[in-house]
Amino acid sequence: MINTIDISHYGTVAESIRIEAARILGEGLVTAVVAYTAGRRAGSVQPAIITSAAEAERLTFTAASVNNLAVYLTKAKKDIPRSGRIGIVVKGCDLKALVGLMGESQLQREQLYLIGIPCAGVLASTVRPAEPLTAGNLAPKCRECDAQLPEGCDYVPEIDLPLPTPLESTYAAEIARLEGLTPAERWAYWKEQFAKCIKCYACRQVCPFCFCEQCLCDRNKPQMVDTTPRPAGNTAWHIVRAMHLAGRCAGCAECERVCPMDIPLNLLNRKMAKELKELFDYEAGFAVNEKGPLTMFMEKDDQSFIK
């Protein structure tokens, strides 16, 4: 698969971000802007938090702008000084996470100035950030994206290019394949995947919804989950992670992108999302919901599991 994805508008998007960030910082509308700058390696991009209009000229947006910057607004990142209103660059999938955080009373809309990206997709991995974006190295989440044009932002650069049409979902195909296996075969698959886990917790640390001040897996009074990277502790961690994100995960797939062991974490997230859609007709979107599907009861809820 080498069909190139048209991201020729990203240059204009980057220029618009620079102008808008300089304006809102210059006018004192915000105290900081969370965005992307170029890194040392060819094509590499990294998150940046800027506080002055002069720094805005460093900002960029490319297919390597993979990070969900919402993580920097959570209380898990309390080292980042915050005062006043904050500007933040969001792709549609990142915005869904921000909206989820608002629903969970972690953020308020008035505290934010949202710069939305008309998004044609980003790279699945930044190990080789200079690679041109193709259907082959496109992040799997982007293949099935319904959020290319984020809604409800304070500013979205205007572009006249049509955004690419979504491709067939690789997650749906893989979930269908796994659902077709026997429980023993499925367990063998996940056992092999979890065996690679080294408990680096990169997946947890980049997740906007992993904002617990002390993760259950870090507790030792009492020790809830074995800490060592062995079958018992690894399985427990992956069950805790998948279950605690069910009905919350907005699908930015950052956990899967950052896993240095290539464990397909978003498959678990997508499977949970599928169950929530089927059971409660719930999907993460652009509207703030104060109660998630797992924190409220409705009479029409499926109760067939009560036997």
Partner: peptide, 13 residues
């Protein structure tokens, strides 16, 4: 390093 998310990835690899 303000943006470092505090994982173990760099040390483990």
């Amino acid at each position: 390093a303000l943006r470092c998310v505090g994982c173990g990835a760099c040390a483990f690899v």
